[in-house]
Design a protein around this nucleic acid. Structure first.
Length: 740
DNA sequence: TGGCCTGTA
């Protein structure tokens, strides 16, 4: 049994175990369906099981299949989209089956493998199973694969859908697994589509055990109230004054909105006279708690403590409380109807973080949080018209919103050559796929025939975006991976810079962050990250002094260790590249970064603006969080890690480079021309793929059109941002008007 | 001249 580090599990993920239930399993609705379920799995290769939270499907079905002998020729693998859920479900099932965790029942997540030879029921994250397919394409150690929470449509689960279907339909018998069983578990959502995808397979429904939630549209005073923090505060206060006991959960979009809403609600709540104003005399006070991902773990844990008797708890949260964390005792939900979502735009090659209305199914999911322990109410901060006209039925699945570079490389490495006609449940737009192919070609991961190169095989080993892996490989070939591994790790974890809500403290934090940058020359954000990684050793006074997130740096340590193991393995291969380079530490560092980020290179075009060199020619600004902000006039060429579109197109994590370092690489950005593509051998790439790629690169008139559309879409995103910002300012500066 | 939703390998 391998075991390194224990992921802390939240105390209250999906209840269902009563103390006396250890041997026989708890009395859940699923028990009545036991025989039917086992038979359905035996009969056909694919089965869909639907059921709401609390039906017990995640914990009981794997056990039923095991007890029916379905794990005799291989393990039962169960995937979850999140680590904490994976670990806590495995813990519960192990306890129920009287097994030590890691023996009969185990789990495997990144950095934490708690399984053994004897493990018959393996819980794991979906991304973890996807990695396993890379080394064992037939999934030979499994007899059953169960994909849980399929309605969430995570990127990995969507790819697994297609790969498992292919595994069954494969023409060559040596690549086929017709005897393997696949079960897809989902909330009741788009089930017909799923069933059709898996050859019209059967669908079994397990009755749920949650309580009814009454969904209420709030009457809006004006359209600018939709989803605003001030209006959320008003509704939360109304609930507090007028509704019987029970905690409140408010959904807003981000840290800023949440902190401001907390302040406002606190001021309002302070002046309540509980003798006269409160409807339910059992309620004597209000406890207001913010909740978002970048809070420290200790702060987050406060959320789960029950409020003292007579005190009503009000948690103001991001989307994190919709799926990832469950707060017991919530009877009232206040839903802004908005979410911050990262959307990839392949036409400009940018990820745009924008505030968008949630889907109706997501709103139901949020409302459901009020019905976990008793009947509840959900207040939507939007009108019926908004619900009908602005909120889509379902959330666009991640695979249609993400950069596909990693995914396409993975598929290519699994010998899926025709990545356009791969069986996607929801096919991504072709331009997304073509953009990914182009980028893979540009960084040398695939050749002109669409074959994975040796470099591509190296790159896919890393749990990183391919361009970052490229920089790591370059460093390793120069024997200086110590410079790049920490940076790659720091870029893989959540933001390490703390930005406090209080303006005074914010100034102080900014000064300290500047100090960290100037310790390494003050002109390279990547080097600053390396500096933090090297200096930060423990959750000591150092973290406090410099306003650095210890939790984030700690996870960067784990990532760095994992990446280092991969590099060490690769360097032992006889054909791993070896190079030499004479130069200072900072120069070598920047050269390595160029090898990965030459796609993200930009040249200064005016006083403060830069023009990207990727063929899109977008005009970008340096983000205010960068140490190079305000130093633009000293720069000519820069590379950057990522882009965020708010009031402008900002590039974040920036480093100046010299033209000589990128000039040899730049032609690759435009090399994919008609001449080359026409001489391509076509046996591996499909004709369709070539034609599309050809059109994509060459059709200049169409590209001009697109450019205009892109500018339009960015203009739109910017306009929406500014509008919401203005609304927020208005809403918060004159809350009295709304409070009636 | 001004800002960081959430997961995962």
């Amino acid at each position: 049994m391998r075991r390194r580090e224990h992921a802390g599990a939240w105390p209250n993920e999906e209840a269902g175990l009563s103390p006396g239930a250890a041997m026989d399993g708890p009395a859940l609705p699923i028990r009545r369906c036991r025989r039917q379920l086992v038979e359905a799995v035996r009969e056909r290769p694919f089965l869909i099981v639907t059921g709401e939270t609390g039906s017990g499907k995640s914990t009981q079905l794997p056990r039923y299949l095991y007890e029916a002998g379905l794990a005799e020729h291989g393990a039962i693998g169960v995937t979850q989209p999140r680590r904490v859920a994976t670990v806590s479900v495995a813990q519960r099932v192990a306890q129920e089956m009287g097994s030590e965790l890691g023996a009969l029942v185990g789990y495997q997540v990144r950095f934490d493998d708690c399984t053994s030879e004897d493990t018959a029921i393996r819980y794991m994250t979906d991304g973890c199973l996807l990695r396993q397919i890379l080394t064992d394409p037939l999934l030979s150690k499994y007899s059953v694969i169960i994909l849980d929470e399929a309605h969430e449509r995570s990127l990995s689960t969507d790819i697994l859908f297609g790969l498992l279907k292919k595994l069954f339909l494969q023409k060559q018998p040596e690549g086929r697994r017709t005897e393997m069983k696949v079960v897809v578990m989902s909330a009741t959502l788009e089930v017909e589509k799923l069933s059709e995808f898996f050859g019209h397979c059967s669908v079994l429904n397990i009755p749920g055990r949650s309580y009814p939630v009454k969904e209420i549209f709030c009457n809006l005073l004006s359209p600018r109230d939709v989803g605003s923090s001030a209006y959320a505060v008003k509704v939360a206060l109304d609930v507090h004054l007028n509704e019987p006991e029970g905690d409140i959960l408010v959904f807003l979009t981000g840290q800023n909105e949440i902190e401001r809403a907390c302040d406002l609600l606190f001021k309002k709540a302070e002046s309540i006279d509980y003798r006269y104003e409160v409807h339910d005399r059992a309620v004597e006070g209000l406890l207001i708690l913010p909740l978002y991902g970048s809070m420290s773990t200790d702060q987050q844990k406060r959320i789960f403590l029950p409020a003292p008797r007579g005190i009503r708890k009000c948690v103001i949260s991001t989307n994190i409380a919709a799926t990832s964390l469950t707060i017991e005792g919530v009877r009232y939900v206040v839903d802004s109807g908005f979410v911050k979502q990262l959307n990839h735009n392949p036409r400009v090659g940018l990820d745009i973080l924008e505030v968008v209305p949630i889907s109706k199914s997501e709103a139901k999911q949020r409302a459901g949080r009020a019905g976990r322990t008793s009947a509840g109410k959900s207040f939507g901060l939007f009108s019926r018209e908004f619900w009908e006209q602005c909120m889509p039925e379902h959330t666009v699945p991640e695979i249609r919103r993400s950069s596909l570079t990693s995914v396409i490389l993975t598929l290519k490495c699994l010998c899926v050559h025709d990545v356009i006609r791969f069986p996607y449940l929801d096919p991504p737009e072709e331009r997304h796929i073509l953009e990914a192919l182009k980028e893979l070609y540009q960084c040398g991961a695939i050749d002109r025939r669409g074959h994975v190169t040796r470099l591509g095989e190296f790159l896919v080993q890393f749990p990183l975006p391919p361009n970052l892996s490229c920089a790591v490989i370059k460093a390793a070939s120069l024997d200086c991976e110590d410079l790049l591994l920490p940076i790659a790790a720091m870029l893989s974890v959540e933001n390490v810079f703390i930005r406090p809500g209080d303006p005074q403290k914010q100034k102080e934090a900014e000064l300290q962050h500047q100090e960290l940058a100037s310790q390494v020359g003050g002109c390279n954000d990547f080097a600053t990250l390396l500096n933090i990684f090297e200096q930060c050793k423990s959750p000591s006074a150092w973290c406090q002094q410099y306003w650095i997130h210890w939790r984030a740096v700690k996870s960067a340590f784990s990532v760095e260790r994992q990446l280092r193991e991969i590099v060490t393995k690769l360097k032992q291969l006889p054909d791993f590249p070896k190079e030499t380079f004479e130069g200072s530490r900072t120069e070598i560092l920047r050269r390595c970064l160029c090898a990965g980020y030459f796609i993200n290179v930009a040249r200064r075009s005016a006083a403060r603006t830069f023009c990207t060199m990727d063929g899109h020619g977008s005009i970008v600004y340096i983000h205010p969080s960068s140490t190079l902000y305000n130093q633009e006039t000293l720069l000519e060429w820069i590379i950057f890690h990522d882009v965020v579109v708010t009031s402008k197109i900002y590039v974040r994590t920036v480093c100046p480079v010299r033209y000589e370092w990128v000039q040899d690489l730049l032609p690759r950005l435009h090399q994919l021309d008609a001449h080359e593509l026409s001489s391509v051998a076509r046996e591996e790439v499909t004709e369709e793929e070539i034609t599309k790629l050809f059109q994509f690169v060459k059709d200049s008139s169409a590209r001009k059109m697109e450019r205009r559309n892109d500018e339009q879409s960015i203009q739109d995103a910017r306009a929406r941002y500014l509008q919401r910002k203005q609304q927020r300012a208005q809403g918060l500066s004159s809350p009295e008007k709304d409070m009636g």
